[in-house]
């Protein structure tokens, strides 16, 4: 469960996120749709406790991001599109490092990594250094790393950006599996078809504010294509 209440984040003079509120439930994929620079990444970074909000708060798995950051961190898996890995470590070592920091004991950690690598089709590459991996394989390792502690909440910031079709399919399958397991998933993207494909409910974010939110059906009640809704809403704001 993720509840965001009046979240605002300012950098000097720039207001990146302006009073954003929404809620995502377990077993649900909640989409944040917006152009580049709309405030999606900043919102997710605040939820991930990497940035502190200027005002407002968010409750993640029952913990406040402003007051209980460490407990929030234990509850989330955060994946971003430009996340990096330690090139000189193997895929397994990269994931194990995070598992150990999450406090997973050795045998549990080994088992968990085996399960994740099997799901993500990384078994053969597990003990190779990640430096020469393809972008898709690196992103899969990032996903395994973020979810090594089996968190109830997943924060995915454009997790499929720049990946080829096969990799996108593997990541999508993984996200749907997590949904079936009852995890709360927040998925951001600037590509409408992706959101359409995966998300149960969507918030459209523009210039730091949410300008529309609802289920896919609600947003598409007029039987318009989702893309048209998105462009109309954004266009309306521009005028």
């Amino acid at each position: 469960m993720v509840e965001v209440q009046g979240l605002t984040k300012r950098f000097n003079n720039l207001t990146a996120v302006d009073g954003v509120s929404f809620a995502a439930r377990p077993g649900e994929i909640f989409g944040l749709l917006g152009e580049n620079g709309a405030g999606k990444t900043t919102t997710l970074r605040v939820l991930a406790t990497v940035l502190a909000p200027t005002s407002g708060d968010a409750v993640v798995n029952g913990f406040s991001v402003t007051r209980e950051a460490q407990k929030v961190r234990a509850s989330i898996g955060f994946v971003s599109s430009d996340a990096g890995l330690y090139d000189r470590l193997t895929a397994r070592e990269n994931v194990a490092y995070f598992g150990r920091l999450h406090g997973l004991p050795g045998p549990t950690l080994t088992k968990r990594i085996d399960v994740l690598f099997a799901w993500l089709d990384l078994k053969d590459a597990a003990d190779r250094r990640v430096g020469k991996f393809s972008k898709g394989m690196k992103q899969k390792v990032c996903i395994a790393r973020a979810l090594v502690h089996d968190p109830p909440v997943m924060l995915l910031d454009e997790p499929t950006a720049g990946l080829d079709v096969t990799a996108i399919h593997a990541v999508d399958e993984f996200i749907l599996r997590a949904k079936r397991e009852g995890k709360t998933i927040i998925f951001s993207s600037h590509i409408m078809s992706e959101v359409e494909k995966l998300c149960d409910r969507v918030a459209i974010i523009h210039h730091g504010s949410i300008i529309a939110a609802g289920t896919m059906d609600e947003l598409m009640a007029k039987r318009e294509r989702f893309e048209d809704v998105f462009l109309r809403l954004i266009g309306g704001r521009h005028q």
Binding site: Q70, R73, S80, A83, G84, G103
Partner: peptide, 14 residues
């Protein structure tokens, strides 16, 4: 520079 910092900051470690 590698972009690993953001990931490590989301781990419950001071």
């Amino acid at each position: 520079e590698r972009g690993t910092l953001e990931a490590i900051l989301t781990v419950p470690v001071s």
